[in-house]
Design a protein around this nucleic acid. Structure first.
Length: 954
RNA sequence: GCCGAAGUGGCGGAACUGGUAGACGCGCUGGACUCAAAAUCCAGUGUAAGCAAUUACGUGCGGGUUCGAGUCCCGCCUUCGGCACCA
């Protein structure tokens, strides 16, 4: 009657498949519960031990909810489009569909191996044409809708065209890119191309000029991830920002709702704060400044219109549309040089470098709307084109960055806010009294803001405005492995949607996945596909990674549907996700886009809910230790030289490149003293033949061609590695495969161990130290039921009160802790329970049967085996989760700690019902207390019923 | 740089609402069983002083509030995640 892990885990995994134990019916009277995992990108490295952290937690919760009587939807699928598969295709020629398919098969096996209760019949794969036809379909809906700011919802574009026909743009409530003014007659007079240009300004999916990271030497557009300090990560070639006409989504139209509806969600405050800050709502004013010697105006957004008399210069973004107009002939050279410099700078660099301000004068001046003074217009990288209007009025007295810029450029500073009444106030705080500000003088800041806006409105040069930091989402990629756009262009270049019955627009077969030399997607190579018989041409950009993941949770509800993205009845039954578990790295990307798409589909009347994810839990990451060895950049006598981490200490590290080492070769992996020995250096060299002739220098000698030559008196041949904690990733060679761990300890043990590591929200490096403890626990659990020779369960005897108390205490703790997602403490409670039952030598069925149900969500294989041995034929996972009987929990006695001035000095055990007065008397009579109270008198006595007694003495 | 999170024994962590800091597990030490080992079982284990009873100190650092602070407030330090084309 041994606990044979491997046999029984395989047995029950097969049985669950056969019996379709985890299939989820949609036609049921049961209440629904939807538990969702963030689906993985099926990478070539396979699933690593970090992935399952969230999956195990959601698996446990889903099983728990099913045993509580809910119809639980718990699906899994793949976010299968992505850059790595395309990179792999470029390197090897293997089609991304093929490698992705293989990877998915591997992931599925790995997930199955962990005993998850997914309903695989609902699997989604974002790269499957049957899936992405609906991604394309939703895109077309976005293309053919605009956002009505008054009705607060998306409306069909033809309704906007109707408005233009009768009223022109007058009084339109549509959300748009830049403001346009035209009459009905002007609209009617426009050409088709002009009309489409106008509509692009309103569509929720639209085209505009955006910037890409262009690398001339590689002849390709790079992802931000592939760019380091302005150079390509591969090859180290310069990267510049280049403008391109690309698709975007008008997520900004939904900014207000995305912000307000956060209040309705059961998410952590931290996550909500991140989303709020990302949306970045700010109230202020739009102000226009006339540009001298032109008819043009410069529009700025400011949160501090009160400071308008402190404006001493203006700054436009280097990409600003008016930059060439503003640049005078004398300044042309300087401005061009500067623009060239900015092209090489990433947005992050531009915003981060606050210490070193850069910028140049354009040569032009604006006219101050109140004082009429000349204000120089500069251009500088700290102003971004896509934030606000891409230009600012600079007030160096009350803004840190403007101040730094003014100091750098020697521009004047006018103090306009007297903050002497607020000595602690910082430069940007909205407090103080206005001065040097004409009609605003003497006002408090907040009053001044109101008055300034009124003055702007009265003069017709500005108005109140709400601005968002949130920017429209760039939706084009110049890649092959993504959803093609269902868009063709006619002979005038006007985009025309592909009709719905022609969806999906599938990817053409291709064997060269390199982008074209002019930066277009590899799709442009497929002439047959691009050029249609009627002379129209297809869009060759594809959609980004987040397209498919923005709505996949809806597809699970009705994954096989051929007629719609999901049926109305399925959507009405499943509604929304009750529990979503995933990493914080998605806090502002995926979670924002998915909410946006969900709201859009809700506006179209296609969904019953306004938000997709009711409750969300962020799992931490299981990190890996990255091990690397130091390579000297300069070869020595034509030979590569690696140096021991111990020797490198104190050196200028910039002369070394850390070369990551496959962790399998590292001795004492993950510790401070991890190292390579002669054998592992041999392995390393086999793996990296380019270093075959390298020299490896340790403290007491060196290794060359697999031979250790000691220095005089030297013996140690350890080459210490550099260890750092970081992401587990294929490129860092530190991936640990859960299959290996499952192979040794079994899936139940692996699951419980990952949970036992700590709270799911917390990140920690992977470490198998301690897994033995969980393994021992499972064996002990089993030993309550059977020993080597016989089945021990006592079916007839009556359990004693102690055993019942332990059981019910455990039921209560497990229920409480599952409900607050404290899974790690659940495992501890099980351990305590088993320890105590062992001590009592308890083998009663009446105790052990509920205990089996209790542990089923955590150790599903072992529980199923025991359940069947107890004589049941149906699955333990369709059983009912045990319920607490409070009668067994009542304790007769309670132990109080007795403290004097907060320091614990004694303990007193009393019957549970003892009243405060008796307690007080007894506590003061305790010998320890009497001793400590010598020379002191009781000033106050604090008794917290059931918890503690504190004597305040002096 | 900005936004968010975390810091507790040798290690992973527990302490839910401010109330016995260190549950549970690993590791370590000693013991039982064994020819021996593994496995299992028992006992001990925050640090310092002490034969001991015991005492002092102790939750990243510096201050504060409170009868009482790991928990609340203010100011720092370190590490991790995100910052709009990794997914």
């Amino acid at each position: 009657m041994e606990y044979r892990i491997k046999e029984l885990e395989a047995k029950w995994q097969n049985w669950w498949d056969q019996e379709r134990t985890y299939a989820v019916p949609s036609d049921t009277q049961k209440p629904k519960f939807y538990v969702l995992d963030m689906f993985p990108y099926p990478s070539g490295a396979g699933l690593h031990v970090g992935h399952p952290l969230g999956y195990i937690a959601s698996d446990i919760f889903a099983r728990f909810k099913r045993m509580e009587g809910y119809n639980v939807l718990h699906p899994m699928g793949f976010d299968a489009f992505g850059l790595p598969a395309e990179q792999y295709a470029i390197q090897t020629g293997v089609h991304p569909a093929e490698s992705t398919k293989e990877n998915m098969t591997r992931y599925r096996e790995q997930l199955r191996n962990l005993g998850f209760n997914y309903d695989w019949s609902r699997e989604v794969n974002t790269s499957d044409p049957e899936y992405y036809r609906w991604t394309q379909w939703i895109f077309l809906k976005l293309f053919s809708h605009w956002y009505d700011q008054v009705a607060q919802k998306a409306r069909p574009i033809h309704e906007l065209v109707d408005q233009f026909e009768t009223l022109g743009s007058v009084g339109t409530t549509a959300c748009c890119g830049e403001e346009m003014v035209f009459s009905a007659a002007e609209w009617k007079g426009m050409s088709d191309v002009q009309k489409e240009d106008v509509l692009m300004n309103f569509r929720l999916a639209y085209r505009r000029v955006s910037f890409v990271n262009w690398c001339e030497e590689l002849g390709t557009v790079l992802a931000n991830d592939e760019v380091k300090d302005g150079f390509s990560e591969r090859g180290g070639f310069p990267v510049e920002r280049r403008p391109m006409l690309q698709w975007s989504l008008r997520i900004t139209a939904y900014a207000e709702r995305l912000l307000n509806d956060l209040d309705t969600l059961n998410w952590s405050d931290a996550l909500k704060a991140m989303q709020r800050n990302w949306i970045g709502r700010s109230e202020g004013a739009k102000v226009t400044f006339p540009i001298q010697n032109t008819e043009q105006e410069l529009e700025v957004f400011t949160t501090r219109p009160d400071t308008i008399f402190g404006v001493t210069f203006m700054v436009v973004a280097p990409e600003h549309d008016l930059i060439s107009l503003l640049t005078t002939p004398e300044q042309k050279q300087a401005v061009n040089d500067y623009l060239h410099y900015v092209q090489s700078r990433s947005e992050r660099d531009r915003l981060s470098d606050v210490k070193q301000m850069t910028g140049v004068f354009t040569g032009s001046y604006a006219k101050h709307p109140f004082t009429g003074k000349q204000i120089p217009i500069w251009t500088a990288e700290y102003v971004l084109k896509d934030y606000g209007s891409g230009a600012i009025m600079a007030v160096p007295s009350d803004d840190d960055r403007d101040r730094a810029f003014a100091e750098m450029a020697n521009l004047p500073i006018i103090d306009i806010v007297d903050r002497s009444g607020w000595p602690d106030a910082k430069r940007e705080d909205k407090v103080g009294r206005m001065m040097n500000s004409d009609f605003l003088n003497g006002l408090e800041v907040n009053a001044a803001i109101k008055k300034a806006i009124q003055a702007l409105v009265d003069r017709g040069i500005g108005e109140r405005k709400i601005n968002y930091k949130l920017r429209d989402a760039l939706f084009s990629r110049q890649r092959y492995w993504g959803e093609p756009f269902p868009i063709v262009y006619n002979d005038k270049g006007i985009p025309v949607p592909v009709s719905e019955n022609e969806l999906p627009v599938t990817l053409p077969p291709l064997d060269n996945f390199k982008p074209t030399s002019d930066g277009h997607s590899p799709l442009a190579r497929s002439r047959d596909w691009v050029e249609l018989d009627n002379g129209f041409v297809r869009e060759t950009d594809t959609m980004p990674g987040y397209a498919g993941s923005s709505w996949y949770f809806l597809r699970y509800m009705d994954a096989q549907n051929q007629d719609a993205f999901a049926s109305r009845s399925a959507l009405d039954y499943w509604q929304d996700v009750d529990l979503y578990i995933g990493g914080t790295e998605h806090a502002v990307g995926h979670l924002m886009y998915a909410r946006f798409w969900h709201k859009f589909l809700f506006d179209l009347g296609l969904l019953p809910t306004n938000e997709p994810f009711k409750k969300l839990i962020n799992q931490g990451m299981i990190q890996g230790v990255i091990e690397s060895i130091y390579l000297l950049k300069e070869k020595v006598n034509g030979q590569y030289l690696f140096r021991c981490a111990g020797l490198v200490e104190g050196d200028d590290l910039s002369q070394y490149i850390p070369i990551p080492v496959l962790i399998d070769y590292v001795r004492e992996y993950g510790t401070d003293s991890s190292y390579l020995d002669v054998d592992s250096i041999r392995q390393f060299v086999d793996w990296r033949p380019e270093y075959k002739n390298a020299k490896f220098e340790c403290a007491e000698g060196s290794i060359e061609n697999g031979v250790f030559t000691p220095k005089t008196n030297g013996t140690g041949s350890k080459l210490f590695t550099h260890s750092e904690v970081g992401k587990m990733s294929k490129s860092k060679y530190n991936v640990i495969n859960p299959d290996d761990v499952v192979g040794i300890y079994g899936a139940d043990c692996f699951r419980m161990y990952e949970m036992f590591l700590g709270p799911i929200e917390q990140s920690k490096p992977w470490d198998t130290k301690g897994i033995d403890g969980v393994s021992k626990f499972l064996k002990r659990f089993w030993s309550l039921f059977a020993n080597q020779d016989q089945w021990l369960v006592d079916e007839t005897g009556q359990p004693d009160r102690d055993s019942l108390r332990i059981l019910h205490q455990t039921i209560q703790r497990i229920r409480d802790d599952i409900n607050r997602f404290s899974i790690n403490t659940c495992i501890s409670h099980f351990m305590i329970c088993v320890n105590e039952l062992k001590r009592l030598d308890c083998h009663h069925l009446a105790i052990l049967e509920p205990l089996t149900l209790l542990i089923a969500p955590f150790a599903p294989h072992m529980a199923e085996e025991i359940w069947h041995r107890l004589g049941h034929e149906s699955s333990v996972h369709h059983g009912l989760f045990p319920i607490v009987n409070e009668a067994f929990l009542v304790a007769d006695e309670v132990v109080y700690p007795v403290s004097i001035n907060g320091k614990r000095r004694a303990e007193i055990t009393v019957p549970t019902e003892t009243d405060a007065k008796t307690l007080e008397e007894q506590a003061l009579q305790l010998p320890e207390i009497v001793k400590w109270m010598e020379g002191l008198s009781v000033r106050k006595l604090i008794i917290v019923p059931g918890r503690m007694i504190n004597i305040v003495a002096g």
